[in-house]
Computed example of a mutant assay.
Amino acid sequence: MIVIGGPDTDGDVWASMLTGPSGFADSIDDRTIVFNASLAVGDPLHGAYALNQPVGTLALDTSQVRRIRVNGVMHRSGQSLVLRTEQVLRNCPKYIQTREIVDEQPCEPSVEVGTSLSAAQQRWIEAADTFFVATHSPRHGADVSHRGGAPGFVTADVDRLSWPDYVGNSFYMTFGNLELNDRSGVCFLDWESGHMLQISGTAEVDWKDREAPGAQRKVLFQVERVVYTRDAIPLRWRLVSYSKFNPDSVQKEFDQ
């Protein structure tokens, strides 16, 4: 699984996902990665890479609890996507929940679009322990990052999300981009079903709000566009354990 993020053809920022068998992401030299996969029709980033466009990518291995971010520019070549690297960052394992792949199902994605969150989508978000956030600065390129915590760490209503930001790698790439461009996108995956919820809007950082346990600051996200895709990806995961770094860890309850 590769998470990708960046602007669409209208300048709205989205996060999305590419999946494939082991080896579908192939580093053909020290600056070039080819993803032998494509985004489904209906994905908001489907048409974004006809020519070189800024992109952030995140390779996430939930079974080994490891991740690496690779940012640069990407273009479509036939049925593949080609990334020319500009930044390569190894990240720590904080807040990654351990999951293992248990199945793969054929999928025929179906897409619903809107401008606000339904009650069911709000419940989904508030039960999530993981999501991904994409940002873009015209001066510095695109980035996509992992966010994790105990279920309930994200709050949602019909047109607004918020979440605490915990101690991380201190690169501040998400926040640096937001200082220059508040357009951003978030993506939630239903790990058991393969459904995906993508939301684009604007984000602001409240640097003084440390009310939530472990929070260094709080992010407020205004919902503008919503894309819900049933059967977005074929992989199915099983939760093995929550991250030991999660504030208010629910691992004890999970074990019981």
Rank of each mutant, 00 (worst) to 15 (best):
T202A: 08
D159Y: 07
Y172G: 04
L180Y: 02
S80Q: 12
T98Y: 06
S77Y: 02
V73Q: 13
T202N: 15
V102L: 08
P151S: 09
V3I: 15
Y228G: 09
D159N: 14
S110H: 10
Q87L: 11
N91M: 14
A120K: 09
S162I: 01
G42Y: 00
T57W: 06
S118Y: 05
V88Q: 09
Y242I: 03
S145K: 07
R225H: 13
E104T: 12
L235Y: 13
G5M: 05
F245H: 12
P234D: 04
S110P: 10
D206G: 12
M1V: 08
Y242V: 04
T19E: 15
D61R: 05
Q53G: 14
M74C: 08
G168E: 05
L220E: 08
P21C: 00
P164C: 00
V227W: 15
A48V: 02
E112D: 14
I4V: 13
P164S: 01
R66P: 11
T115K: 10
F132N: 03
G42C: 00
K244P: 14
D61C: 07
E86T: 04
R84V: 12
F188H: 09
K252H: 12
L45Y: 02
A203K: 00
E100M: 08
R84G: 15
H140V: 06
T98W: 07
S116H: 13
W191A: 09
S200Q: 04
L117W: 01
A15C: 10
V144R: 01
Q97I: 03
R123D: 10
G20T: 06
E126I: 00
Y228E: 10
P247L: 03
E253W: 04
V133T: 08
V144L: 03
D61T: 01
V88P: 09
F221I: 07
V102W: 08
V219Y: 04
N177P: 05
L58A: 13
Q216E: 04
L18Q: 09
V240D: 15
S63D: 15
W237E: 12
L239K: 05
S145I: 07
P234N: 06
A15G: 14
T115Q: 10
F188P: 13
G72F: 10
P109E: 03
R123H: 07
I96T: 11
G47K: 03
L81H: 15
D12C: 09
C92R: 12
Q122P: 08
P7I: 01
F221Y: 14
T98S: 11
M196W: 00
P109F: 01
F175M: 02
F254H: 08
H46Y: 05
G185K: 00
R238E: 15
I68C: 13
W124C: 10
T155I: 12
E126L: 01
A134G: 03
M196I: 03
L117H: 02
